[in-house]
Design a protein around this nucleic acid. Structure first.
Length: 569
DNA sequence: TTTTTTTGCGCC
DNA sequence: AAACGGCGCAAAAAAA
C-alpha cells in the first residue's frame, strides 16, 4: 500500500531505511544516498510503505516530494532504524537532522538477547517474523548487471521498502520486552548519546604514517622470503611443520589441538626451539619470526593501507552490538588489537604507524586494574579493597600472602576472575589436579568473599536467566547452556564497559573538538589527539571521577594513567 | 570450485 | 563435576 505522508505522522513510530551507492558516508566525497524508504502501519494495522528514489541515474521523485520526505524525517517524533549509526550519518550527509526520538532494531535485538546468532535484518526477520529480506533472482541479476549504485530507481522501488517494513514490524515485536527490561528511559537515552559520540570518533579517524607502513611491509616481505628459503617449507602449514619437526627431526608432540592434531602454536614452538637450539638448528626460531611477520604485515601494515581513506585517515567500525558483555568491538581494521610496543622486530614498533593530525599529539588514558577494582567492590572483598586503598599493587600483595611469584598471582587472579576452574589452573601452571585445587583454595582463603560472590552470580544467572550490571543493563543466560560460570565475569567486564562509557560521555561533553578529539576506545583505555596540553589533566580527572555513578564506587579509587600514545608504558 | 571450519594470534 | 571472560583477522585445511 502506498503511503500517504500525512498518515505517517499519525503513527507513533516510523521506520526509515536508506539506500546508498555503497561508498562510505562517513567521509567519501563521492558518497550518495540513492533513496529513502519509510514504513509504518496505519490505524487498521495495514502496512504502509514507500521507497523514494532521490539520486538514481534514471528517475527520481520530484523536488516537492523529496522535501516532504525530508521534513517528515526531520520532524517525526519517533524514527526506527536498523543500525542507526549508519543511517544517521547518511541522513546527516543529506543535511537531514532528526529532531525526534529514535529506536534501533539491531540494538534492541542485542539488548533483549545478546546471545542471538545474528543481529542482521534478514536473520532477525526470519527468526521473529517468519520473513526475510526481499531477495529474488530478478533483483540479483539486476544488481549484478548494473552494479549496486546503478540499479534503476523504478526497479529499486519494488524491493527497497521491504527493509523498512521488516524494521517496523521487528520494532513492534521487540517493544514489550524492551520496555519490560527497563531500557526505554535513561539507559537508551544515554546509548543514543554514546552512539553519536562513537559516530563522531569514526568520522574523525586516525592518521596513518603510510611511508612507515610501506617500509615495514617491504622489510617484512624480504625477511619472510629469506626465512622461507632457510626453512624450506611453508611455516604456516601445520602438516608441513609436523613433517619436519615430528617425522624428520623426531621431536615429540608437545601439544594437541582440539581436534587431536599436533599443535604448533607459539607456546609449543618455544619448546621445540629449546630442543633445536642445542642442535644448532634455528628452524623453530625462523618459523616464529616468519609467522610473526606474516601476521603483522597482513593484519596490520597492509590492512591499514588497504582500508585507508583517501584523506589519509583510518576509520574503523566500532560495533555497539559487537559483544555479549556490552563492550564495544572494532572492525576493519580492529584497532583494539594493535600490538603493544616490544622488542619483537615484526610487531614491536607498530604504534609508530599512528600519528596525530598536524599539530596534534596522540594521548592514551588507561584505567589501572579496572575490572579487578570492580570485582573487589562487588564482592565486598575487604582484603582487596584495603590493598587498593593502601596503594599496594594487588598482585604484589597477593604474591606476598601466598608466597608465590607475582606473575603467577596475576595469571591466577585473572583466570579465576574469568571463571576458570581447577582444570584451567592445572593447565595454566602445569600442575597436577590436586595441586591446582589447593592453589585455588589458597586463593579463596585470601579472598573468601570473592568466591562467595562468584558463586552467587552463577546461581542467580541460572535461577533468573540473567544478571544485571550496575546500570541495570542485563546480561542474559540460557538456562539450557552450561555457562553460568561466566556470570560474574560478565558483571565486572560489562560493568567496566559501562563505567568507561559513562566517563567517555562525560569527557566528550567537556572537550572542545577543535583542539581535542576522542579517537579510539579500547575497553579500559581512551585515545585522543590533542593540540593543547591543558586537556591531559582535565581528561584524567573526569575519567577518575566515578563516585556519582554508583553509591559503591567510592570504596576504591579508579586511577587513570596517561601517556603519549605509542611510547612504551 | 566455493564455502565453512580450524588454527593461530593480536588486544583488553 | 566442570567451566578462564570478551573480541576480529588471515591463512590453511576440510568439507561441500
Amino acid at each position: 500500500m502506498i503511503a500517504n505522508l500525512q498518515d505517517a505522522y499519525k503513527s507513533r513510530w516510523l521506520a526509515v531505511d536508506t539506500e546508498t551507492n555503497a561508498l562510505d558516508p562517513r567521509w567519501d566525497p563521492q558518497f550518495k544516498c540513492l533513496g529513502i524508504s519509510i514504513a509504518f502501519r496505519n490505524e487498521l494495522g495495514v502496512m504502509c510503505s514507500e521507497y523514494y528514489p532521490i539520486n538514481h541515474w534514471d528517475s527520481n521523485e520530484t523536488e516537492d516530494t523529496i522535501n516532504e520526505v525530508r521534513w517528515l524525517i526531520t520532524t517525526h517524533p519517533g524514527l526506527v532504524f536498523h543500525n542507526a549509526k549508519f543511517d544517521l550519518v547518511v541522513l546527516d550527509r543529506m543535511g537531514i537532522k532528526p529532531t525526534g526520538d529514535y529506536l534501533d532494531t539491531m540494538l534492541m535485538a542485542h539488548w533483549i538477547d545478546e546471545n542471538l546468532f545474528s543481529k542482521e535484518l534478514d536473520w532477525l526477520g526470519k527468526r521473529f517474523l517468519g520473513r526475510g529480506k526481499a531477495m529474488t533472482p530478478e533483483l540479483d541479476s539486476v544488481i549484478n548487471s548494473f552494479g549496486w549504485g546503478l540499479v534503476p530507481g523504478a526497479f529499486m522501488k519494488k524491493y527497497a521498502s521491504t527493509d523498512a517494513e521488516l524494521t517496523f514490524d521487528l520494532c513492534m515485536k521487540f517493544m514489550k520486552k524492551w520496555n519490560d527490561e527497563g531500557y526505554a528511559g535513561a539507559l537508551w537515552a544515554r546509548e543514543q548519546e554514546f552512539l553519536a559520540l562513537i559516530s563522531r570518533m569514526e568520522r574523525q579517524g586516525i592518521v596513518i604514517d603510510t611511508d612507515f607502513c610501506k617500509e615495514q611491509i617491504d622489510i617484512g616481505e624480504r625477511t619472510m622470503q629469506e626465512l622461507l628459503f632457510k626453512v624450506g617449507f611453508n611455516p604456516s602449514s601445520n602438516p608441513q611443520l609436523g613433517e619436519y619437526l615430528i617425522n624428520q627431526m623426531g621431536l615429540p608432540v608437545v601439544k594437541n589441538t582440539k581436534t587431536g592434531r599436533p599443535s604448533f602454536d607459539k607456546y609449543a614452538m618455544a619448546e621445540y626451539e629449546e630442543i633445536l637450539e642445542q642442535r644448532e638448528d634455528a628452524t623453530a626460531q625462523n618459523i616464529l619470526a616468519y609467522r610473526g611477520w606474516q601476521k603483522t604485515v597482513s593484519s596490520n601494515y597492509r590492512a591499514y593501507l588497504d582500508l585507508l581513506c583517501t584523506d589519509g585517515r583510518l576509520r574503523p567500525n566500532f560495533l555497539l552490538h559487537g559483544t555479549r558483555t556490552g563492550r564495544l568491538s572494532c572492525r576493519k581494521p580492529n584497532l583494539q588489537q594493535i600490538p603493544k610496543s616490544s622488542d619483537h622486530p615484526w610487531n614491536g614498533g607498530l604504534k609508530r604507524a599512528f600519528l596525530g593530525s598536524e599539530g596534534y599529539r596522540l594521548l592514551g588514558f588507561d584505567y589501572s586494574n579496572l575490572e579487578l577494582r570492580l570485582a573487589a567492590i562487588y564482592a565486598r572483598e575487604d582484603a582487596l579493597i584495603d590493598a587498593f586503598n593502601a596503594g599496594f599493587k594487588p598482585f604484589d600483595e597477593l604474591a606476598a600472602r601466598l608466597n608465590k611469584p607475582r606473575n603467577l598471582c596475576k595469571n591466577l587472579t585473572y583466570a579465576i576472575l574469568y571463571g576458570g576452574g581447577i582444570n584451567r589452573i592445572k593447565n595454566l601452571f602445569g600442575l597436577d589436579w590436586q595441586a591446582a585445587k589447593e592453589l585455588r583454595e589458597e586463593f579463596f582463603r585470601v579472598y573468601p568473599n570473592l568466591q562467595e560472590t562468584i558463586q552467587y552470580a552463577s546461581n542467580l544467572s541460572k535461577r533468573r536467566g540473567y544478571v544485571s550490571l550496575w546500570t541495570e543493563r542485563r546480561r542474559h543466560f540460557d538456562r539450557r547452556d552450561d555457562d553460568a560460570h561466566k556470570a560474574f565475569n560478565s558483571i565486572i567486564q560489562g560493568g567496566a564497559a559501562e563505567l568507561v562509557k559513562s566517563r567517555q560521555l562525560a569527557v566528550a561533553r567537556e572537550i572542545d573538538w577543535d583542539t581535542c578529539r576522542m579517537i579510539l576506545s579500547v575497553h579500559d583505555e581512551l585515545v585522543f589527539e590533542s593540540a593543547d596540553p591543558k586537556w591531559e589533566p582535565i581528561i584524567k580527572e573526569i575519567m577518575m571521577d566515578v563516585n556519582g555513578l554508583n553509591p559503591n564506587f567510592h570504596k576504591v579509587a579508579f586511577p587513570v594513567e596517561s601517556k603519549i600514545w605509542g611510547l612504551a608504558a
